[in-house]
């Protein structure tokens, strides 16, 4: 592969490789620099309240990141299984996957989060009473784990559809050729279809990550001390809504635009020519 890059630089058919992360190749990094500079300047020049906000909310930033990354990892697994289910020839698997996608997509994430957090413990406790199991009766939900689970269930449905569309974008002949060489369906999926589908769905997958990072702010309603919730706590204590939400917005913005740059870098790295 290395050799080839040298042989065909810049030609229409040349292998496209992004290479280094540099401002020259991706001018949007200037936006990241600008936003970072604003944050740093505010913190340095106006430590009250901006430095205080950042210090107060830093554990919230960490929680937001943990919830986002952990959920995203689980979403990828659910999305792969759901997407394979949505193209399954087995009617039961197809039916279950489709039902999951259709139902979950039709309910707002906020409602799902609140439902999981407030309703599911009651159901588990009632079940415990009925079965007379002490462990279930004393069940108390862990906010972060419940939130991650609720987000995974919801976003997993969207991701399933992305994976399905990616698999269906790979020409049928690829699977046929693989099968005709004696590969099993599973081997053909793993070595031929999914690697090609993955490159197609990278942009929407990246999109989901950025949307997820922002939607993770909804977990603040179910007792998770994320960036949004910490911002609200700071505002209530100091009565300065303008500064607080300006800084919280900047902190979200820096996270999302860095994520967007990383996504775009990965996209460039993994492009290849299709015929």
């Amino acid at each position: 592969m290395e050799e080839h890059k040298k042989n065909a630089p810049g030609r229409e058919l040349s292998f496209v490789v992004g290479g280094e992360v540099s401002i020259r190749q991706d001018p949007w990094w200037w936006l990241v620099v600008a936003v970072a500079a604003i944050i740093v300047l505010l913190v340095m020049l106006l430590p009250v309240p901006f430095r205080e906000i950042v210090l107060f909310a830093r554990d919230g930033i960490l929680v937001t990141m943990v919830v986002t990354v952990a959920s995203y990892f689980l979403i990828l697994i659910v999305g792969l299984l759901g997407g394979l289910g949505r193209i399954s020839k087995n009617k039961l698997i197809f039916g279950l996957a489709s039902l999951y996608v259709e139902v979950v997509r039709g309910i707002p994430l906020l409602v799902q989060l609140i439902g999981w957090y407030f309703a599911s413990p009651v159901i588990i406790q009632k079940l415990g009473l009925w079965l007379n199991l002490q462990a279930l009766i004393e069940y108390r939900p862990n906010p972060i784990i419940t939130a991650i689970m609720a987000i995974t269930v919801c976003y997993g449905a969207y991701m399933s559809e992305i994976v399905r569309s990616g698999i269906q974008s790979v020409p049928k002949g690829q699977m046929e050729a693989a099968r005709s060489l004696g590969m099993s369906h599973f081997q053909a999926m793993r070595h031929v279809v999914l690697p090609q589908a993955f490159r197609v769905i990278l942009p929407p997958m990246g999109n989901e990550f950025i949307a997820l990072l922002k939607d993770s702010s909804l977990v603040s309603v179910v007792a998770v001390a994320d960036l949004t919730r910490r911002g609200r706590e700071f505002m209530s204590a100091h009565f300065n809504p303008i500064e607080t939400w300006f800084m919280v917005a900047l902190l979200y913005l820096i996270m999302t635009i860095v994520a967007a740059r990383v996504v775009s870098y990965i996209e460039k790295r993994s492009k290849y020519e299709r015929y």
């Binding site: 020409p171 002949g173 690829q174 046929e176 050729a177 693989a178 099968r179 005709s180 060489l181 004696g182 031929v192 690697p195 090609q196 490159r199 290849y272 020519e273 299709r274 015929y275």
Partner: peptide, 17 residues
């Protein structure tokens, strides 16, 4: 059986990646 029988398609179907 497929191991013993090779097939060549009209549209090549080479693995694009």
């Amino acid at each position: 059986i497929r191991r013993e029988v090779g097939i060549v398609f009209q549209s090549f179907n080479l693995f694009a990646h």
